[in-house]
Amino acid sequence: MTSWRSLSRTKIVWPLIALGALLLLNLFFTPHFFRLEIKQGHLYGNLIDILKNVAPIMLLSIGMTLVIATHGIDISVGSVVAVSAGAVAILIGGDLAGHPKYPIAVAMIAALLVCTAAGMWNGMLVSRVRMQPIIATLILFVAGRGIAMVFTNAMVIWLYAKPFAILGQGYVLGIPFSIYIVAFVLLLTFIFTRRTAVGMFIEAVGINPTAARFSGINAKNILFWVYTFSGLCAGISGLIVCSTVMSADGNNAGNLYELDAILAVVLGGTSLNGGKFYLFGSIVGALIIQTLTTSIYAIGIPADVSPVVKAFVVWAVCLMQSERFRTRIVRVFVRKGLSA
């Protein structure tokens, strides 16, 4: 029992198996799923589509992983994505000739600063005001979309500044540019958490906050920065979302992304109860979700219906993590074993 648990919790094996199984299903039912074509020097196909669309969720899941590791949750990330998209869009401006109002780099940095501030707000509420994370982040969840819509004056802003499109639409060596951004952020996060004591402190706070405090760890600061980082990740994610469609739609940008991100983290092996976290697991989790969505689409089911499948995946994952469910299952098996 313990060995099964330790294996399932410490290894990246399970999410990889799930991803493999999903791809295998596609191999049987929709062989065209794996077809790759080269058009205009770029690779095209479902697999590339997955990579192209997965970046925003991956970025959110990186930040969310650390938040969940502290036994918290950040449900404001979807709204912050919209804020980021809205902020960058008004700063670049909808000039039809493609001349940005402010330099693109400045616009991007400003948007990221806004999102980092949003993260700090969450972090402050959780660590200083000591609100429950769900409630604390609920506030920006509600207000965030409003802020985004106020930025864009409730209109969809279309962008024509070509260079900005690279973020979400560019390719380098046949692979979407956004994937490089994810890799960069992932690498930095990995180094920052695993090559400093940050990761260990985060896990310590998530496993046993009292013991962490007694050991001299400044839990408040850890919490504050974790939420701040999640805000930053949401900001980067928002830039990519905006660049992919070259527009900012405060109403729909990042809609329901928070659940995708949470799901990715949980699928990746990080427990909602906090503690040990697995950054690469979350990345694989995000891939699973995107593959699922794309697969459903490939089978011919409208994309809008895919949440139904996701809902059942969430319930299944929750049940797997439930101690009570596991003991009940074990009991059923034991009973069967006895009668047989």
Partner: peptide, 26 residues
């Protein structure tokens, strides 16, 4: 159990934690 040991961390991490906290994160 509830105020001392970090059950899911390794023995090494459990031992090093306070010293690391004292040294600071970086």
């Amino acid at each position: 159990k509830s105020e001392g040991v970090f059950a899911d961390l390794t023995v090494r991490e459990n031992i090093i934690l306070a010293l690391q906290a004292r040294n600071g994160v970086f």
